[in-house]
Design a protein around this nucleic acid. Sequence first.
DNA 1: ACCAACGCCGTAA
DNA 2: TTACGGCGTTGGT
Length: 254
Amino acid sequence: MFKKSIKSLMANNNHTLEILNVLKEASLSGSILDASKKLNVSNKQFIKVESNNIKKLVNKESSECSNNVTIKFQRMLRSNLPDTIIKYSFFNDSVFGPGLIASTDSGVCFLGFDETANANTSSILYKDLTKRYFEAACFQEESTKIHLQIIDYLKFEEKNKDIDITVNILGTDFQFEVWKELTRIPKNKLTTYSKIGINIAKPKSFRAIGTTIGKNPIAYFIPCHRVISADGNIGNFRWGSNVKMAMIGWESLN
DNA sequence: ACCAACGCCGTAA
DNA sequence: TTACGGCGTTGGT
C-alpha cells in the first residue's frame, strides 16, 4: 500500500508532510518502522526534511500537545554497581521495532531499539547494556513488572495513555543536565542541539551535547529523537535514523 | 594529573 | 561537500 506512495515520493522532491503521510499509511497497517526503513534506505534525501516544514516544527509554540510521559531521575553511583542486580528483557513487537529494556530495583536503567530485528544477547543492544554497567550482574528476566508495563505501552494500543517512569542511570552532572532538558521538549515539537545548549546556559557546547545525547540510556522516554540538526537534517541517532524518523513521524500523528 | 581522540554539531566557504 | 572550531567525556599514559 505505502510502497506506491514511496515511489511517488522518490520521483518528486519529497517534503516532511509527504513523508509523514507515508508514515501515517504505514502506521495504519502497523508497520511504521518498515516504512521508515524504506524511506531511508532507498534514498538518502528521504531523511532530509524540507526547511520550511522543519522550521514549523522547531518553532512551534508549546504546548498545545503536552507530554503524557513523566520521568523521575534517580542517579546511580558507579561505586554501587558491584552490588547491583540488573534484570533485562528483550521485546519484539513495539511500534518502533525490537529492543531491550533493563532495570535495577530503583528504576529503568536501559532502553534501546534495534531496527535490524536482532534483539538478543549478540546484539549491539546487549553489548551496550553490559559495557555501560560492566560491574553489575545482569540477568535475563522476562516477567519483570515494569518491563511488561513499558513493553505494553510501546505498542500504543491505547491512545494518549499516561505513564510515570523512574529511571536509575549513570551520568555526570553535565549529562544529567542535558537529559533532563530533553524531557522538557513537548511532545510533537522538535528542537536542535544548539537550542538545548542555550537552554542550559552553555551555548557553545552543542558538540558535547551531541555526544551526550548519543549516550542517552533510555530511548524514546528521554526523547532524544526530538533533537535534530540546525540545518534541517534529521541528524544522527544511536539506534539508526530509521528509528528516529519513525518516532518523529509517529509523534506527529498522535 | 595530563593529553589525545572522539562524537546524534554548526557554520563558513 | 569539506574543513575546522569548540566542548565534555573517556581511556591511555
